[in-house]
């Protein structure tokens, strides 16, 4: 079967233990206002135009005969600076696995492995599971919002050696306000993860005045108890890619508040 990938990043530093390669799967059921990968939201391939360096030469708008350009109304095969691209590549599971296996020697030398991220990788869970089935000797990690059907969550995380799961907002209504969905299923899935025996970490993105409030952090602490937690400082570049996919970023570029780590039993802060 096939899946849609929007990026494969070599040597990603914050996606799990050791030297890693991260596969970003396209499509996400959440709409977090602070999402820094807006090109990962839609499941379908889409046009991505890096406008900052564009000189408006007009070549891409002249019209062309390439089949692959037709859906986008722009020519993707002519920009002198390669600023007009299609975001989203379809892979056969086996082909993607082979691509990952090319890095096997690095994984071994760097105590690393592959990380599936997104988007929300669980949205393409069948594909992810099939890719994993070809990666027996590779350390596999997943970054997930935890927002998936319970059976899907259970059967997928079993394929992994390490799970990085977000708990962004404790309050049910606020979760819906800022991410577009309720957190009920996420909290259920967390309970399963906690008892699964699979090594994991809970990640909390610190978004100014939304998730970094004392109230929210206390709420999350209550949910996670002694589970390991990583608080992720707000990425002030989060809005950088919105323009290239024709969207607008609605949050500020301010820094998050310095969190009080003592709220948690077992937390670290990543800058």
């Amino acid at each position: 079967m096939t899946g849609t990938v929007f990026d494969i990043k070599e040597f990603s530093l914050h996606d799990g233990p050791g030297g890693r390669v991260t596969v970003f799967l396209k499509g996400c059921p959440l709409r977090c206002k602070w999402c820094h990968n807006p090109e990962g939201l839609k499941k379908e391939s889409q046009l991505l135009v890096k406008t900052a360096q564009c000189t408006n030469c007009g070549l891409c708008k002249k019209g062309c005969h390439h089949l692959e350009c037709q859906p986008f109304g722009r020519c993707i095969k002519v920009c002198p600076k390669n600023l007009v691209r299609i975001c989203g590549t379809e892979y056969e599971a086996k082909d993607l696995a082979n691509k990952i296996l090319e890095y096997s020697d690095f994984f071994e030398l760097n105590n690393g492995g592959v990380t599936f991220s997104g988007g929300e990788p669980l949205l393409q869970h069948e594909f992810v599971k099939e890719v994993c089935s070809h990666l027996e000797n590779v350390h596999k990690a997943i970054q997930t919002s935890g927002y998936a059907d319970e059976e899907v969550f259970k059967s997928t995380i079993k394929c992994f050696d390490y799970v990085m799961m977000d708990i962004k907002i404790a309050d049910r209504e606020k979760h819906r306000e800022f991410t577009g969905v309720y957190n009920d299923v996420i909290l259920k899935n967390f309970q399963f993860l906690k008892n699964s025996g699979i090594p994991y970490i809970i990640r909390v993105p610190l978004i100014p005045d939304i998730t970094d409030t004392e109230e929210n952090l206390k709420g999350i602490s209550k949910i996670v108890g002694t589970s390991p937690v990583e608080l992720l400082s707000y990425n002030q570049m989060a809005g950088a890619k919105y323009e290239s996919v024709g969207m607008q970023y609605s949050l500020t570029n301010d820094k998050n508040k310095e969190p009080d780590l003592s709220i948690f039993k077992n937390a670290i802060l990543s800058k």
Partner: peptide
């Protein structure tokens, strides 16, 4: 290179 963990990963990359 912002944290120690990353510096260590770069070190491992050079070793590779």
């Amino acid at each position: 290179f912002k944290d120690e963990d990353s510096v260590e990963k770069v070190a491992m990359l050079v070793k590779s």
